[in-house]
Amino acid sequence: MKTILVTAIGSFSADIALRSLRQAGWRVIGCDIYPRQWLANSLLTDGFYQAPLCADPDYLPFIRRVCESEGVQFLLPLTDLEVDVLSPCRQQLLELGVTLCISGEATIALCRDKLTCFEHLRASTGLPLIPTRRLSDVAPGEAPVPCVLKPRDGRSSQGLHKAPDARHWDFFIQELDPDKTLVQPMIEGRIVTVDVVRDAAGHCVCMPRRELQRTLNGAGLTVETFWDEQLVQMCREAAQALSITGCVNFEWIDSPQGYYFLECNPRFSGGLAFSHLAGYACVENHMACFTGGELQPQVIPQQRVLTRKYHEYSV
Rank of each mutant, 00 (worst) to 15 (best):
T245H: 01
I191P: 09
G218D: 04
I191C: 14
D228N: 15
H168E: 14
I187A: 04
T193Y: 00
W227L: 13
P208K: 06
V197H: 01
H161W: 12
F171Y: 14
E251A: 05
L212M: 15
A201S: 12
Q230R: 11
D165M: 13
V196Y: 07
C117H: 01
P164T: 13
T225K: 06
Q233I: 01
G246P: 09
M186V: 02
H168V: 10
H203Y: 07
V197F: 01
K114G: 03
P131H: 08
K150R: 10
G246I: 04
C206A: 11
R122N: 02
E175T: 14
E229R: 15
L176D: 09
A241L: 01
D199L: 06
D228K: 12
C247E: 02
T245R: 13
P164S: 11
R190W: 09
Q213G: 10
R134Q: 03
A139R: 00
S243Q: 04
R214C: 03
E142H: 08
E211D: 15
L221Y: 05
E119I: 01
R134N: 00
D137H: 07
C235F: 06
R198W: 00
I244V: 15
V145S: 00
A238S: 13
S157H: 02
V148H: 07
P128W: 01
H203C: 12
R134G: 10
G126W: 02
Q184A: 09
M234W: 15
C235R: 03
R167S: 15
G202W: 06
E142Q: 14
L127V: 08
P164Q: 12
P164N: 03
S156W: 01
L231K: 14
D199W: 02
L149F: 04
G159N: 14
G246W: 02
D179E: 14
N217P: 01
M234K: 03
K150C: 05
G189S: 14
W227K: 07
I173A: 10
P178A: 03
